[in-house]
Design a protein around this nucleic acid. Structure first.
Length: 147
RNA sequence: UAGCAAGGGGGCUCUAUCGCUGCAUACUUUUAGUAUGAAGAGGAAAGUCCGAGCAAUAUAGAGCACCGUUCUUUUUAAUUGAAAGAUCUUCGUGAGAGGAUAGUAGCGCAGAAGAAAAUAACCGCCAUUGGCUCAUCAUCGGUGGUAAGGGUGAGAAGGUGGUGUAAGAGACCACCAGCGUAGGUAGUGAUAUCGACGGCUGUGUGCCUAACGGAUUGCAAGACCAUGUAAACCAGUGUUUAAGGGCUGCUCGCCUAAGCUGGAGGGUAGGUUGCUAAAGAGUAGAGGUGACUCUACUAUUAGAUAGAUGAUAGAGAAUCUUUUUUAGAUUACAGGACUCGGCUUAUACCCCUUGCUUUUUU
RNA sequence: GGUCCGUUCGUCUAACGGUUAGGACGCAAGAUUUUCAUUCUUGUAAUAGGGGUUCGAUUCCCCUACGGACUA
């Protein structure tokens, strides 16, 4: 039976807090062209057991001067994340049933050319798989240490 | 037909699926969530070059200083915008386009070049005199007259021709160019034009003068709520002195102690509001050369807050290329952040009106 | 978002609207030295781009581009 996936992308999943963003840029990062991905995995404070993911995307002025092009790229990043985020969430929820995890992710656009939408989507899938592997490891470690 | 000039208008459309933003309604309800509905970026949203609204702070008042504007008239909420004109000037065959222009009573300055950059005598010209010479010419020096000539320069003592003279000179005359004075005519006015009178006549720039205008900071302004708590701050009362402080840079001038009573803040991270109906838009009519004004009618939720309009698929439209009916390519500049008006800059392509030039054809 | 400032040889800088835009370091050539360095001489090279005002702009005015500061 296939689930009816919700492709929603509301305000809860966007990263807005300033302190969180400052913490995000101190942590580790992955490179996969054309993105630089910054991520930060922490325990959750909420009462219920769930996985919360917050996302930020930014395109620097170094890429291009015109605001239209930068906006278009941001929109495409958000779109590709929206369509592919189930790759990260669904398996994580299976693993971490009793955990409280928040993952903050920042997508930073690096390429100086205007990449096509398909390549963006491909790289987005790669990134999400990588992130899943990392998150799974961290879950295991946390379980072992907790026990 | 081609190439141009001026002005004006438009700025790709539709469908499906998955999403984003706030709003309204209904349901569940602790926050909030779900469903439905209708709506959701421009001509420049940009630059921030001007102006205004709005807000806070300051302000007894006056003078000086400082800053801005500057041909005329009209227009606008608006001191730099707009329209219609005036004079001069540059570009263009032309339609047209760009630029400059308050006043000169007084004072200052003008590199290099040049004799001289303004009550001009360096060379030259003329007269006279001294030396040299037997004497004259020539030549050297003194005194005086003289702006006709002198390679410069952005600018050279109004120009041309005569009279006149020792040589010359607006010294005088004729014509021409400008200026001033008091007038006529046309115009609201800048100004144009007409004759009269006056020999009045170099260029640029700054100071200066005149008229008009100007408090400062900006929605991250500010207001409220919650959080939170040092005795600075505010209000009232009150009395003495003016050192110090404040009030726009200065001057005059003005205000201001402590104490007592009451109220409540700063910093940090938030929320609500400010925040979208307006000096608005469209249509029609009237007035005006025009900018613009007046009247009537009509319709009208963009309001985000690391910042919403996207992605995919399909169909059509326009232009271009190849080719002859398909195929391919292209569809600009560019994204609200309190609001409005103007200016400036960027802009594929299409349409309309008026006008100019050249060639060809009829 | 708002308010401002700046741009001069390869680098750091100077300039009253007026001579061929000056100086230091660097670079190149030559001299000195057995050679290198030091030193000396000579040279090279710039007003961000485009308009305007002016007889004449690095300088004054306007537009564009780039860089920077302050402001929660």
């Amino acid at each position: 039976m296939e689930k009816i996936r919700s492709y929603r992308f509301g305000k809860d999943e966007k990263l807005c807090n300033v302190n969180d963003i400052a913490a995000l840029f101190k942590d580790e990062h992955i490179f996969t062209f054309p993105f630089k991905v910054v991520y930060n995995i922490t325990d959750n404070d909420s009462e219920q057991n769930c996985v919360k993911i917050k996302v930020l995307c930014s395109v620097g002025k170094r890429y291009s001067k015109s605001a239209v092009k930068r906006n278009l790229i941001k929109r495409r990043i958000r779109e590709s994340y929206r369509l592919n985020k189930h790759l990260l969430i669904e398996p994580l929820e299976e693993i971490a049933v009793n955990k409280k995890i928040t993952i903050n992710i920042g997508f930073i656009y690096i390429s100086k050319k205007e990449e096509e939408y398909e390549t963006q989507q491909k790289s987005m899938r790669k990134i999400l798989q990588k992130l899943y592997n990392i998150a799974a490891k961290s879950c295991d470690i946390s379980t072992t240490t907790a026990d």
